[in-house]
Amino acid sequence: MRTDDKLDQMEERPTDRVQPPPMTATRLWLFGGTLAVYLAIVIGVLTTSWLVTLDWQVMFFRPYKQWPEIHAFLDYFVVLGQRGPTAVAVAAWLGWRCWRQRNLHPLLVLGASLLLLNMTVGAAKIGMGRLGPHYATTVGASEMGLGGDIFPSGHTANAVVTWGVLAYIATTPLRRRILSVIAALGALGVGMTTVYLGTHWVSDVVLGWAAGLLVLLAMPWLEPGITWVEDRLMGIILRLWLRLRPDSLRGPLPVGMPAPAFSRQRPASEGDVLVRETIGAGTVGRTAPGRPQDGWPHHATRPYAIRSERSPAAPTGSRRPPHADRVPRTIPLSPTSGRGRNTTG
């Protein structure tokens, strides 16, 4: 593929890519219902309701002692909710998609979702300060405000967001449904694994599911900002590419459009025309020697001459070089000439 074709793909986003889900009325209702569940769980734990009683009952049950044979497997399975490994794996996959689509949208969606997740879940963890099952001090207490950082469950919320982003930016509705089911099952498994290992209360996991779902449902509100950042970053990338390969982008500049000066740009001379480069949200101009408005160099037009007026391709006359002993032939030979040279005998 030529450089020009690659740059065209970088400059123009694919038109067949399915846009992310918009903020419809259904999503608004889901967002409101999930937020209500989130607040209800927080209030239930703060008031030491039946949720706290359930947390202590499961903790005393000690699932990791009831089924020890699956402990080794679940130690590895819970990594699917750990922020570092999952973010690297998903970022590698989305980076390859960015290269194929020639845009930064998939990676920027992942970055925005993780940033929102860290801000919301991190603030809730620090603000409520709940201790985990292994560090509980008073039986039957909510263990809130004691300096902990497990409420809501970060593993669970991260599993919902990281794997849910793949469904959010899926290219077809069918893939979006399939990936949504896979992400939901994965987040459910990670949350229950933390309860099995005794690192989280049941209410931590339920609140983590709600926190992650709120981030995914709020992503359409972040799309304008993501698009704005993407345009600026693509502009920077194309500007850097243009400085390295100044002859890669071509196109006519509209009449009256000023051209910003580039560093190391030679002064314009007679016959130069202005060539524009559309980069992201801005326009960059430069001069190119001898290029007309179509952006491609060619020779000046010349009048067309008919065949009789053209100069001959070869000189006229005989191509045989002159000889000193040869007599010029002025009389054509007779048909019998050449058969016998001696006429006197």
Rank of each mutant, 00 (worst) to 15 (best):
R250H: 11
A167F: 11
T193C: 10
S203R: 06
G212E: 03
G191N: 00
G251I: 02
S203Q: 07
L242Q: 14
V195D: 05
G191W: 13
M219F: 05
S180W: 05
L213I: 09
P224I: 12
P224L: 13
M234G: 01
A187Q: 07
A184W: 05
M257P: 01
A261H: 12
L179F: 15
D204Q: 01
G191H: 09
A170T: 05
L249V: 07
A210R: 05
A170I: 12
I226Q: 01
L240C: 04
R276K: 15
T194K: 07
T227M: 10
L233P: 00
G198K: 02
G251E: 00
L207A: 08
H200K: 07
L217H: 03
A211E: 08
E230N: 14
R264S: 01
A183C: 14
L222P: 10
M257T: 15
G256H: 04
A268C: 04
L244D: 03
R264M: 08
I236Q: 00
P246H: 14
R250E: 02
I279T: 04
T193D: 11
I279N: 03
P224H: 13
W209H: 12
D272L: 06
H200D: 14
E230Q: 04
A170D: 05
G189T: 15
Y196I: 03
M219S: 13
L242N: 15
R245K: 04
L214R: 11
L185D: 13
L207V: 02
W201R: 08
Q265H: 06
L174W: 15
V205P: 01
L188P: 10
R276E: 07
A210N: 09
G271I: 03
V275K: 02
A184T: 14
L242Y: 04
T171Q: 03
G225H: 09
V255T: 14
L179E: 14
G251P: 13
A183I: 07
L253R: 03
W209M: 11
G271M: 06
A259K: 01
A210W: 02
L214D: 00
A261N: 01
E277M: 05
W228K: 00
G212K: 06
L274R: 11
G212W: 10
L233N: 00
Y168L: 14
A170H: 07
R239H: 07
G189S: 15
G198L: 08
A210E: 05
I237N: 07
T278C: 08
W201I: 06
L233R: 00
V275M: 09
R232Q: 07
T172L: 07
L197H: 06
V190F: 12
S248V: 09
I279G: 01
G191D: 12
R243E: 06
A167N: 02
